[in-house]
């Protein structure tokens, strides 16, 4: 990860976790946990794109692979905390929920949200990843050598 430091690491992690959540999931978990506080838009939700880059031969020079849809927004709580969201897809409601959690993670609500939103997402994504990996593992070829009839 670029510019990875102790300070950024947790925020980097939760923003990434929420960006990869299924549609509507962050909002559902957020609303089950807290009542959303008042906020003002710093940047209202906006749908756009990001150019995905890759490297020739996986490790060589970068090239442009194609774009992905992204929704972003930023909001400020009445208490001053700023929340950001950059989320794959075109769901403005998802971006809003992510920015709200991001802002609330800078408040005293952080501990509760960690347990009831972020840890839940983490577990769900791990389970989904593991389920897929287990299906892939079942398609792994076990080669064996036939007994050769040379004597």
């Amino acid at each position: 990860m670029k510019d990875f430091s102790e300070d950024h690491a947790p925020r980097q992690h939760w923003l990434g976790l929420m960006a990869k959540a299924p549609m509507g999931r962050v909002a559902t978990l957020l609303d089950e946990t807290v009542t959303r506080p008042a906020f003002t838009w710093l940047r209202a939700p906006e749908v756009g794109s990001t150019m995905v880059r890759a490297r020739a031969g996986a490790t060589g020079s970068p090239f442009n692979l194609g774009e992905v849809t992204v929704t972003r927004c930023a909001l400020t709580l009445a208490t001053g905390e700023v929340g950001h969201a950059y989320v794959q897809g075109r769901s403005k409601a998802d971006a809003e929920a992510v920015a709200m959690v991001d802002a609330l993670m800078q408040t005293t609500a952080a501990t509760t949200l960690q347990v009831q939103v972020l840890d839940v997402l983490d577990a769900e994504q791990a389970a989904k990843r593991d389920a897929r990996a287990a299906k892939a593992a079942a398609t792994k070829v076990d080669f064996f050598t036939m007994v050769r009839g040379e004597d």
């Binding site: 670029k2 510019d3 950024h8 980097q12 990869k20 990001t50 996986a58 950059y86 794959q88």
Partner: peptide, 25 residues
């Protein structure tokens, strides 16, 4: 694979999603 992007207003990069890719070498 995750897609990671520098977010200027944050000053660091964040994973913004995930894409499925096919790679052939």
């Amino acid at each position: 694979v995750p897609v990671e992007m520098d977010i200027p207003e944050l000053g660091f990069s964040v994973e913004i999603g995930e894409v499925t890719l096919t790679e052939c070498e």
